[in-house]
Amino acid sequence: MKDLGLLARLRRYFVAGILVLVPIGVTLFALRFLVNLLDRSLNLLPDAIQPENLFGFSIPGLGIVLSLAVLLVTGMLAANFFGRKLVEWGERILNRIPVVRSIYSGSKKIAETMFSGKSDAFRQPVLIPYPHENSWALAFVTNNNLGEIQYRTGTDVVGVYVPTTPNPTSGFNLMIPRDQVIELDMTVDEALRMIISLGVVVPPWQGDGQTAARELERKATDPDR
């Protein structure tokens, strides 16, 4: 019995160690990857002012400072009259190059949608029936107006992005009938945490079982809801 008690304590200590060290390790790995990625921006500097040549050693994280400085300076230039004219002139040149035009316009549209704050894209977590009608998947609304796609299908459809787990940067772009999309109360951050954690981290909900039951009953009696 004492041996069993000792094994149980060792197992508990082992699990406790995993719960402490694994999140720290994953966080450090992600930060190291980000720092190394941004440090590559230092390669844009002339050799004479490279940190290795100036100080004799590399400075981890200096690329983050440089990247932030470039973003701030670019934003300051683009926000004034002359900067806007310069950006417009550069865009006209890029839009005349066949392949570059498609890449630039597409990436610009994505950036404007994601960061301008003027779009509802990726602001509403939803549930959709995927990959079949008897299962559900977390998704994010990307577009409420699909133009030709909505006309061709003859259905009121919504564009959604279904991220993969545990890596939400890859996923599937789907068009789902609006009446099959269930809006959620959880925030985008909470939905992402649930996806990254393989569904283990479920955000708290203010509703209760009776509220959910009444909602399901309303949907059953009112299919257009």
Rank of each mutant, 00 (worst) to 15 (best):
E148F: 00
G171P: 02
T164M: 08
R123E: 15
T164D: 12
R123L: 13
M175T: 13
T155Y: 07
L138Y: 04
P131E: 13
E183P: 06
N143D: 15
N134H: 14
M194Y: 12
F140I: 04
L138E: 02
Y130P: 02
G171D: 01
I176K: 04
V160M: 06
D179C: 12
L184A: 02
L146F: 07
I176F: 09
T165R: 06
P163T: 05
T153Y: 11
M186S: 04
W136G: 07
R123K: 15
T169G: 00
Q150I: 14
R178V: 14
P125T: 08
T153C: 11
T142D: 03
T187R: 00
L146T: 04
Q150T: 15
A191G: 07
F172W: 08
A121Y: 01
V181S: 05
I182V: 13
A139I: 06
E183F: 09
M175Y: 13
M194N: 13
L192E: 01
N173M: 11
R123Q: 15
M194V: 07
Y151A: 13
E133K: 12
T153Q: 15
T169L: 07
V162H: 03
V200M: 13
Q180N: 15
I196G: 02
R193P: 01
Q150W: 03
D156H: 11
R178N: 14
I176M: 12
H132G: 12
T169W: 05
G199W: 11
T164G: 09
V202R: 14
I195R: 01
T169P: 00
V200T: 15
L192H: 04
T155M: 15
D156N: 15
G147I: 12
L174M: 08
F172A: 06
V201L: 14
G199Y: 09
Q124W: 05
L184S: 02
F122Y: 15
D185Y: 00
L146Y: 03
M175N: 14
V188M: 00
D120Y: 08
W136N: 08
I196T: 05
V158M: 08
D189C: 00
P125S: 12
Y151S: 10
F172K: 08
T153I: 09
G171C: 05
V158E: 02
M194Q: 14
N145E: 14
V202S: 09
L192I: 13
V141Y: 02
I195D: 01
E133P: 06
L146K: 04
